[in-house]
């Protein structure tokens, strides 16, 4: 039962992921990303990581994809199909991805070919919360500092852009002095 559910969700994830990287309409790619991330969340649910599945839907679908769509609006992404969205070296990229998939796939099958996931008890937020605030407190705090740094970095980047677009006087002055 779980195998069938996982296979369905996994197939959906793979098909949607392929459409994300091959779609010629950039907005459609972002919307297929929602499907792919939702299907992966379903896989998490089948593996009894319900809390991770909910966080995935909350953060990825709720925040990240919305952020991506906003960035598309701000960069005036066209909604018509763009043939130039994929570069001419895509056959080489496909070859690299295929070889990597073969290597990783054979490695995984050789290493874990006959291991089975036992039917696990339903996961709860309690165990994850205990783990976060008991054995993983230090990484948790480091991660909060990292988030703060990323926030400040994003603000600084988007503020300095206004000044950078203007012609900068000191650089040309320095060059003049050098001459």
């Amino acid at each position: 039962m779980t195998t069938a559910l996982f296979s369905i969700a996994g197939a959906m994830a793979v098909v949607a992921a392929v459409l994300v990287v091959t779609s010629r309409r950039i907005v459609h790619a972002a919307l297929w990303l929602v499907v792919a991330l939702g299907a992966v969340a379903g896989c998490f649910g089948v593996l009894h990581a319900e809390f991770v599945a909910l966080v995935q839907i909350l953060v990825y679908v709720g925040a990240i994809v919305v952020l991506v769509l906003f960035a598309m609006m701000l960069t005036k992404a066209p909604t018509n199909p763009l043939p130039g969205l994929t570069t001419g070296r895509s056959p080489f990229a496909a070859a690299v991805a295929l070889v990597l998939a073969l290597i990783l796939g054979t490695g995984v099958v050789v290493a874990f070919g006959n291991e089975k996931v036992k039917p696990v008890p339903a996961g709860s937020a309690e165990s994850v919360g205990n783990a976060v605030f008991r054995s993983w407190v230090l990484p948790f705090e480091v991660l909060s500092v990292l988030l703060l740094a990323a926030l400040i970095g994003a603000i600084v980047l988007s503020q300095r852009s206004g000044r950078l677009s203007e012609p900068s006087e000191p650089v040309s002055g320095a060059e003049g002095g050098d001459d």
Binding site: V14, A17, V20, A93, A101, L104
Partner: peptide
């Protein structure tokens, strides 16, 4: 593995 390699293709080809 499949999802990772699809991502690798996207990074290289897009």
């Amino acid at each position: 593995v499949l999802l990772f390699c699809i991502g690798v293709y996207g990074v290289l080809a897009r």
